[in-house]
Structures are given as C-alpha cells and as structure tokens.
Amino acid sequence: MRRQIPIVVCFVFGIFMLAQFFVSHPLLTRGYQNVLDWMQIIFVFALLVGALSFLILHLDKISKQQKEWGYNLVALAGLAAMVFLGFFKGIQKDSPFLWVFDNLQVPMQSTMFSLLAFFVASAAYRGFRARNFQSVVLLVAGVLIILGRVPLGEMLHSKIPESATWILNVPSMAARRGILIGIGLGSIATSLRIIVGIERTYLGKG
C-alpha cells in the first residue's frame, strides 16, 4: 500500500494535468487553479524540510566535532541570527535584517563571484593549450568569443565580432538545439514512465 497510493496519486494528477492543458472545460480549469495553490503550499513545507535538514546536518557535525566543525557553527549562527532579525525586527527598509543582507551577504557573494576573473585568467594560462586539432579549434573559437564580445575585438578587426556572432548563432546554437530537443524528448519519455508507474525511483527504497 505504501507504494501503490503514491503511484495512483501520481497517475491521477499526471493525467489530470495533461487533460487540462488540452481541454478547456470550467471544471478542469477550476481543478487546475486549485492544483496551483496546492503546489505553493507544498513548496512552503519543502522549504521547512530544507531548513530542518540544514539544522540536523550541521548539528550532527558539531556534536561529533568533525574536521573544521567551527564552520558548521558559523553556518548555524548565521541562520539563527537572520531568523531572529527577520522575525523580531522585520525586513522593512533600514531594518537590521536588510543591513546584514546589503552589507554582508551582497559584498561577500559578489566577491566570491568576482574571484572567477582571477581564476579564469590563471586557468586559461595553464590549461588552454593547442595540444591537438580539437584543442586548436576550441582555442580559436574561445579567443574569438573572448575578443568578439568586447569593444576591443571590433577595434582590432571588424571580422572578430562577426566571427563571434557566427560561432554563437551557428555551431553553438546547433549544439544547444540538439541538447534541448534531447532534453525535451527525454522529459516526455520520463514523465510518461512516471505517470504510468514504470519509473518508481522517486519513491525511494522504502
């Protein structure tokens, strides 16, 4: 029963969502609007599960004093501080919650992202080698895109941005389309397998 009920629920809702997409009937439309509400309610519970899982994971590491457990303590302190500030001091303009967000989280995350420029430069110097034909093609395409996407490319030669645009619009787009069509077909096949109960891995091992 533990496995049959979720499979039946999945089948009923899968068929319902398919039907409501193609059939415009008031009853189906009302049902669809209810499902949209339920989705948001379920997601809120998923958020709670996520927060709980975060808490359990870090508490476990702290209690066992695993390697570098101080970082787990910092993560939990951060969570507790933001929950406290959000619930008791509010999230409106000039609140401590927003101050922490604007002056700690935003600069820290931007800094992490900005570091990419330094690591990309170092990695490009060490890794971008013309070792064989394929790597030469990759190297040429990479250099053309790097230069073609900034004004400097246009200054060096008018053909550089044109070549970069061609690479994006022809070979790159062809590859992306292939991937997208593959994903689409795969999604349809997997969805059908889930709806009819062939694919059951989402139920877990139980």
Partner: peptide
Amino acid sequence: GMDAQSMAHLLIVLLVILGN
C-alpha cells in the same frame, strides 16, 4: 564596465598566447 571587461579579456588572450 565594458572598458574593464575589454582589458580583462585582452589580458586573458595574451596569457593564453604566452602559455602556448
């Protein structure tokens, strides 16, 4: 920002050439 990005891209290309 584009000026800064242009110079950063130029540096990366120069490093790639130097590395090769």
